[in-house]
Amino acid sequence: MEKTPSYFVTKETPQRISAMSRDTKLIVVVRDPVTRAISDYTQTLSKTPDLPSFQDLAFRNQSLGVVDVSWNAIRIGLYALHLENWLRYFPLAQIHFVSGERLISDPAGELARVQDFLGLKRIVTDKHFYFNRTKGFPCLKKPESSGSPRCLGKSKGRTHVQIDRDAVEQLRDFYRPYNVKFYEMVGHDFKWE
């Protein structure tokens, strides 16, 4: 098992993984691409305070609604395009998509689906989680062999930067056809609106 966030969006990765093992099962966590881009920007801003504004990076021309797809924070959310590349090397049946939103609202339910996809007995259940109010995320309860619970790192769970409502709506409009295509490809509506 390995986890690398950039695998899904790196063009050469599907071919390399397929060459290692065509039987690999893949799990991809996706979330609303607009929220994901804002989260990406918020995290980068925490490390680079002199970063240009979100709107300056997200748009080539905001008044015309021209989105800059060369900016990584925007490009990553074009899930349908990335999935097309993966489907050249792996059947859809070997790829499971986890809803990032439901991973927060119902972690045990999402992990039950992951366990089913992997053909594992359902061991992780509701009893393994508690909601951390400080983080705003569910965390794993303390295992008996450990002194502390497992929760997201310091860089996770921070409040997002406020983005102009018009910019958010423009991005929703931009992503809508990509989202619809993605829903059709995977047979699941993630309801990103």
Rank of each mutant, 00 (worst) to 15 (best):
L87M: 10
P143D: 04
K141F: 01
V30L: 03
R172C: 01
P14H: 06
W192E: 03
L140D: 02
K154L: 04
F131R: 13
F174R: 02
D116R: 14
I38E: 04
E193L: 05
A37Q: 05
R102E: 14
S63I: 01
V98M: 15
S155N: 06
T13M: 15
R176Y: 07
T125E: 08
L87E: 12
Q55M: 07
L64M: 10
P91F: 03
K142E: 09
F117I: 10
K47L: 14
F137Y: 12
F59V: 07
L120E: 13
I123E: 14
K25R: 15
G187P: 05
C139T: 04
H188R: 14
I123R: 12
R31T: 05
R133S: 14
I17M: 14
A73R: 11
Y183F: 13
V114T: 10
I27N: 06
L111N: 05
A58R: 02
V98H: 08
S6M: 12
Q170S: 11
V69K: 11
A167E: 05
H160G: 12
V124K: 03
L45H: 11
V98G: 01
E184M: 04
S46R: 15
I38D: 04
D40K: 11
F54D: 05
K135I: 07
L92H: 08
S99I: 02
V180K: 09
V9F: 15
G187T: 07
S145G: 05
P177H: 09
E12Q: 14
I38F: 00
A167L: 03
T24R: 04
F90P: 02
N72D: 08
P107A: 11
S105M: 08
K11V: 12
T24N: 06
P91L: 09
Q115F: 09
P138R: 04
K154E: 05
K191R: 13
R88M: 12
E110N: 06
L64H: 08
D50W: 07
N132Q: 10
S148A: 13
H128D: 14
T44N: 12
E2Y: 06
L78F: 05
F131Y: 15
G136S: 02
A167T: 05
D40L: 03
N61F: 00
V124H: 01
I163F: 04
Q170K: 13
R113V: 00
V66E: 11
T125S: 13
E169I: 02
